[in-house]
């Protein structure tokens, strides 16, 4: 829960600091998380192209997993993956 009082918030809730959505961990909204099976993954980066939240981690043109702080669990990556290497798993379930 946030702790700023009404009087300390900017007028009308306007955002006066550019880029601060980085600190808004929208990944907390997720109910299902994507998991990648790197045995199947071909590093085609289709998931990276489609991810609306810029939450596919890429290093040296290789798919390296997900940035769970901002992945909302929409499942688009799993749906688009040509190699069927991404599975959506229920959060909170082992």
């Amino acid at each position: 829960m946030a702790d700023e009082g009404s009087s300390s918030l900017p007028l009308g809730g306007m955002i006066i600091e550019p880029g601060n959505s980085r600190r808004y961990r929208t990944g907390e909204w997720r109910s299902q998380r994507p998991e990648v099976d790197k045995e199947k993954c071909t590093n085609c980066l289709t998931c990276w192209i489609y991810c609306p939240d810029n939450s596919v981690l890429v290093e040296n043109e290789k798919m390296m997993g997900f940035k769970y702080s901002h992945c909302k669990g929409c499942g688009i990556c799993a749906n688009q993956c040509p190699a069927k290497a991404i599975t959506m798993r229920e959060e909170g379930v082992e």
């Binding site: 946030a2 009308g12 955002i15």
Partner: peptide, 18 residues
């Protein structure tokens, strides 16, 4: 400046209280 951004339950009430 961003005007009129979304405010979730953590902030909506405080912004209305303004």
């Amino acid at each position: 400046t961003t005007y009129g951004p979304i405010a979730m339950p953590e902030y909506y009430y405080e912004i209305k209280y303004q």
